[in-house]
């Protein structure tokens, strides 16, 4: 053992120092998470390549898809065109209803709910190891992104939260990462129970909702939305559906397993909620 140390003392010394420095960096990171130590520069330097590779990959896949399923793509195209016409008509009708709604709200002096403002972004990279779930998107502080903003899909389902922002790109921590935490609310008329939603390492396709009261009225199939109790996150973004409820902490609390509405392995475009 002493011989081993003697032979490699320089490396061991460097390693120990490195670990100490990294521990310090992580501690500082826990206190001031928004500080950028140059990661932004690295991400920005790599991001353009990610964009190019993605473009090549997408074009290749799409072309291959069209070539292989030519007939189906054509049929789908026809079907979609018909649908667009139908939907346009529906939008027109809904606009009228919206106007009516606004007028009535004004009459009743209801507070008009401000819709969220979004920025669209494309996923250009994913996490570099199997222990974390993050994606890199092609919008950054130049487009007005800030850390802690929520990221959703086009149908409004929660995907994750913006973590590291650089000038032209940003990293998004996904729902199912073990470091992800957000306040959740059971969206049911009879019960508005609040719990904490976490990602888990073991089952990456399920989330965990902890600290539900022991007498909580939670059943399989209930929808869970963000609670909006902190000022950081908007209320009412859909997170997932309850698939399992079990007692925890010796029956003092309940915990539920949620299945997110989004398939977290395959989405490609996202919206970032910049204001709410």
């Amino acid at each position: 053992m002493a011989g081993l140390f003697k032979k490699h003392h320089r490396f061991i010394l460097i390693l120990v120092m490195l670990i100490l420095i990294l521990t310090l960096v992580n501690l500082v990171g826990a206190v001031a998470p928004e500080k950028d130590w140059g990661e932004g520069l690295v991400i920005d330097a790599v991001a353009p390549f990610l964009g190019v590779i993605n473009w090549v990959n997408d074009t290749f896949n799409d072309t291959l898809n069209v070539l292989l399923n030519y007939k189906e793509v054509k049929e789908e195209n026809n079907r979609l065109q018909k649908k667009v016409k139908k939907l346009n008509w529906k939008i027109h009708q809904l606009n009228e209803t919206a106007k009516l709604n606004d007028r009535l709200r004004e009459l009743l002096e209801f507070k008009i709910r401000k819709p969220f403002t979004f920025i669209g972004a494309k996923v250009i990279g994913k996490s570099a190891d199997n222990w974390s779930q993050i994606v890199t998107i092609n919008r950054g502080s130049k487009s007005g992104l800030e850390p802690k903003m929520l990221v959703v899909t086009y149908n409004g389902y929660l995907v994750g939260r913006v973590e590291q922002v650089s000038t032209y790109s940003a990293q998004v921590l996904l729902l199912n990462d073990s470091n992800f935490t957000i306040g959740g609310l059971i969206a049911k008329k009879e019960s508005r129970e609040i719990g904490i939603v976490n990602g888990s390492l073991a089952e990456t396709d399920l989330l965990k909702m902890n600290k539900l009261p022991w007498d909580a009225n939670v059943e399989v199939g209930d929808k869970v939305i963000t609670s909006g109790l902190s000022k950081l996150y908007p209320k009412g973004v859909l997170i997932g559906k309850v698939v399992k409820v079990e007692p925890e902490d010796y029956g003092l609390t309940h915990s539920a397993r949620l299945k997110p509405f989004v398939d977290l392995g395959t989405f490609e475009e996202v919206l970032v909620i910049t204001d709410f």
């Binding site: 490195l18 670990i19 991400i43 790599v46 570099a128 993050i134 073990s178």
Partner: peptide, 16 residues
Amino acid sequence: ILQDVFSSGLFGINTV
């Protein structure tokens, strides 16, 4: 260190 920039969690684990 490059890998750590592109993964979440404890920073530096891949470096070490």
